[in-house]
Measured scan of single mutants.
Amino acid sequence: MDVFMKGLSKAKEGVVAAAEKTKQGVAEAAGKTKEGVLYVGSKTKEGVVHGVATVAEKTKEQVTNVGGAVVTGVTAVAQKTVEGAGSIAAATGFVKKDQLGKNEEGAPQEGILEDMPVDPDNEAYEMPSEEGYQDYEPEA
């Protein structure tokens, strides 16, 4: 019985440690998101679009440190934060509304985080759909 109880105690310690790591990862992701939003706020009209992409990228980098179902929630929060940063930029006159959601080359930025393969159960990952990809044929 002692062996059984000791095993359960060790398992509990492992769960607590994993929860603490997840909590730490979420806190880091939130900190990076805040950094990115402050970065966007300090940019001029020309830099705002690039700044919004930076927020998304920093958040995406930190999301990889967070495991399990938390990833889905962090990704949703990050996307809403990026959308909010863009709205703030438009409201303050840093950028025109028609410039939001495009990178410096004018290509749409939507789907940055949505296409990231995420499995809350950590069982399997699927690649994003290939609808947006084109076949590449090298020139002879």
Rank of each mutant, 00 (worst) to 15 (best):
T72G: 14
G93R: 02
K10S: 05
A90C: 12
G47C: 03
K45I: 09
K23N: 00
K102A: 03
S129D: 06
P120K: 10
A19L: 15
E83G: 10
G132S: 02
D2T: 03
M1S: 00
P117R: 03
K97R: 11
L8T: 00
A89V: 14
A124K: 14
F4A: 00
N65L: 06
K58Y: 15
A89M: 11
G68Q: 02
G84D: 04
K23Q: 14
D98A: 08
K43M: 15
V52W: 09
V74K: 02
E35G: 04
V63R: 05
K43R: 09
K6I: 11
G36T: 11
A124R: 13
Q62M: 11
E126V: 06
V95F: 15
M127L: 15
S87E: 09
A90V: 02
G73N: 14
G68D: 12
T92V: 06
E114Y: 06
P120R: 09
E13G: 04
F4Y: 01
G51C: 11
V37T: 01
G84I: 15
V55D: 00
Y125N: 08
E46F: 04
Q109G: 03
D135S: 03
S9H: 10
F94A: 08
V3K: 01
K10E: 01
E28V: 15
V77G: 03
G47F: 15
Q24M: 12
E83Y: 14
H50E: 03
A140I: 10
E126A: 15
T54Q: 10
E61H: 09
T59F: 15
V82G: 02
V15P: 00
A78N: 01
P120V: 06
V3T: 00
V55S: 01
T33H: 02
I112G: 11
T81S: 08
I112N: 15
L100G: 14
G132V: 12
E126I: 08
V52Q: 01
A56S: 13
V48I: 07
E114N: 07
T44S: 12
V82A: 11
V48P: 01
F4E: 00
K21S: 06
M1N: 00
K10V: 13
K45G: 04
K96C: 14
V26A: 03
V26I: 12
K58N: 03
A91K: 04
S87V: 07
V63N: 01
G132C: 08
S42Q: 06
Q99M: 15
V26W: 14
K80F: 14
Q109W: 12
P128V: 06
P120F: 06
G93A: 06
P108E: 08
G51S: 03
G25Q: 14
M1L: 00
V63M: 14
N103Y: 06
D115C: 08
E104V: 12
G41C: 13
M5H: 00
K21Q: 03
T33K: 01
E123A: 08
D119G: 08
A78C: 08
I112M: 06
G93S: 06
F94D: 05
I88K: 05
A53G: 06
V66I: 14
K21T: 09
V26N: 00
S42F: 09
V3W: 02
A56N: 02
K45V: 15
A76H: 09
A76C: 08
K34L: 08
E110F: 08
D135N: 13
G84L: 07
V55G: 01
V48W: 13
I112T: 14
A90T: 14
E137W: 05
N103A: 04
A30M: 13
E114K: 05
A140E: 07
M116F: 07
V82S: 04
E126M: 04
K34A: 07
E110G: 02
L113V: 15
V15M: 11
K102R: 10
T33S: 07
G93T: 12
Y136L: 14
V37L: 11
A107H: 09
V26S: 01
P120N: 07
T64N: 12
A17N: 09
M5N: 02
A91T: 09
N122S: 08
D115K: 08
H50A: 14
A56P: 01
I112L: 05
V52L: 15
G106S: 12
E46T: 15
V48S: 01
G51F: 11
L100E: 13
G84A: 15
E123I: 03
E13A: 12
M116D: 07
K12S: 09
K96V: 13
K32R: 14
P128M: 09
M1P: 00
M116K: 01
V55E: 00
E114Q: 06
A85N: 03
V63K: 01
V40K: 01
L8W: 13
V15F: 11
Q24F: 09
E13F: 04
T75Y: 10
S87F: 13
S42T: 04
T72A: 08
L38W: 05
K97T: 07
D2W: 01
L113F: 14
E130P: 13
E13S: 15
G86C: 14
Q79P: 02
I112E: 08
H50R: 09
T81V: 12
M127R: 05
V52C: 09
D2N: 08
E61G: 09
D121G: 10
V71Y: 06
Y125I: 14
T22P: 00
E105K: 01
A29F: 14
E130A: 05
G25H: 13
T81G: 06
K34T: 02
T59M: 01
F4P: 00
P120G: 06
P120C: 06
L100A: 09
M127F: 11
A69D: 14
Q109M: 03
V3F: 02
P138K: 05
V40M: 10
I88D: 06
E104P: 07
G86Y: 11
Y133F: 13
V37H: 00
G25N: 03
Q24N: 05
A19Q: 01
K34V: 12
K21Y: 12
Y39C: 06
E105L: 07
V40Y: 15
P117E: 02
V95K: 04
A91N: 08
A140R: 10
E83C: 06
V55Y: 13
E126R: 08
V63I: 13
K6W: 02
K32P: 00
K102C: 13
V66M: 14
G93C: 05
G7Y: 03
E105H: 01
V66R: 06
V66P: 01
G25S: 15
G36E: 04
K6S: 03
D115H: 12
K43C: 14
Q62D: 01
S9F: 08
K102V: 10
G86P: 07
D135H: 10
E104T: 14
L8I: 03
T59L: 04
V63L: 12
A76D: 03
Q99D: 13
D2A: 01
K10R: 13
P138F: 13
L8M: 03
T64W: 05
H50F: 12
T72C: 08
K58A: 10
M116G: 04
E20L: 09
A11G: 03
A17M: 11
K58M: 09
E57F: 04
G132P: 03
G41W: 09
V16M: 15
G7M: 10
L100M: 06
G14P: 01
M127Q: 12
P117L: 04
L38C: 08
E110D: 06
S42K: 11
P138L: 10
A19E: 00
G7H: 04
E57I: 10
E110P: 09
V55L: 13
M5S: 04
G101F: 05
E131L: 07
D119H: 15
A91E: 05
E13D: 12
E28F: 08
G73K: 11
G93N: 03
T54S: 10
A27K: 13
E110H: 02
T92R: 07
Q134F: 10
A29R: 10
V74S: 02
M5A: 07
V52T: 01
T22G: 14
T64R: 12
Q134A: 08
T22Y: 14
K10Q: 03
M127E: 14
V37S: 01
V70M: 09
K97W: 15
E28Q: 06
A56G: 15
L100Y: 01
T59C: 15
D135P: 03
Y136H: 14
S129W: 04
D115I: 04
A27Q: 14
A140P: 10
A11V: 14
A27R: 08
T22W: 14
V48E: 00
A11D: 00
A76W: 13
V71T: 07
G68T: 12
K102I: 05
K21P: 00
